[in-house]
Design a protein around this nucleic acid. Structure first.
Lengths: 138, 138
DNA sequence: GAGCAAGATGCGAAAGATATTCAGTTTTCC
DNA sequence: GGAAAACTGAATATCTTTCGCATCTTGCTC
């Protein structure tokens, strides 16, 4: 149940939060912008302001429920945090996003960071390209 | 001479362009936001508008003279393009940026992209962490 | 070097994303 | 059931980036 996750995050269980979490879980797409979530709410006849969407997503982020990503293009996208880290392959034509994990890359990153005496907190690897369908179309 | 580079890029040689390019070359830091460049111009008593800074940087980007990066935090940073691709290690405390290149990572990326039938156009790898100095301070 | 067209510039205003304020409402906890 | 604390929507503010447009420059020609 969504309300459990929200409660465990130390947040009060309110209608907007539950609905937003539901959307993140059920809307099919893994990556949604604040705007996407807002539009989805509107299409469900929900009376939830954009400001609340941002607030809730930010709170979810602090609580570790979702991750925020800044891809190129100004807008942030949010995705549910399933605990596993992964990187992204983004199609610059159609916006399709593929997730991947590669331990070789993760290891090299750790190595490089330690060579520079950095303690890694996070990282973001995004590969931009053109997916097979868009290659055909072009 | 800066004016050569600008001319070769197919752009008219104008005072703002030369000055901005000089700043990128000489200001010491490799990564500047549009705001940074603008402030630097102001401190040099130059009458150059912020809009022009953005326009010029965007043109330089199209011309391949500089690269624009979107790190976390809303603002874009620009850096001179020396032809070589590289990735970034960013200190989330002090903002220090270290550049690195790792062919193992590059290769894995290419492999992953081809496994998904993507044609790579670009990529961005940013590792966020805490640098040695900031670790001491904390 | 004057003349001209194409292209640049500066400024203010606008756009887009996100954050904040505020007053009223809802949840939680006892 | 009620008070305190936390939450909400709307409007507003902010920040970065872009646009519109009148004016000025540059690069080329003669």
């Amino acid at each position: 149940m969504e309300s459990q996750q929200i409660k465990q995050a130390g947040l009060k269980v309110t209608a907007p939060r539950v609905k937003i979490l539901k959307i993140l879980e059920n809307c099919g797409k893994r990556h949604l912008s604040a705007e996407d979530v807002y539009k989805e709410l509107l299409s469900q006849q929900e009376e939830i302001g954009l400001a609340t969407v941002y607030r809730v997503l930010t709170q979810f982020e602090s609580a570790g429920l979702v991750c925020r990503r800044h891809f190129e293009g100004g807008q942030s996208v949010f995705e549910l945090n399933h605990g596993d880290h992964h990187d992204h392959l983004v199609c610059i034509k159609c916006g399709k996003i593929v997730e991947f994990v590669d331990s070789t890359i993760e290891n090299r990153q750790a190595r490089i960071a330690s060579e520079h005496n950095f303690r890694i907190e996070d990282h973001s690897l995004v590969v931009y390209g053109i997916c097979s369908e868009c290659q055909k179309k072009a």
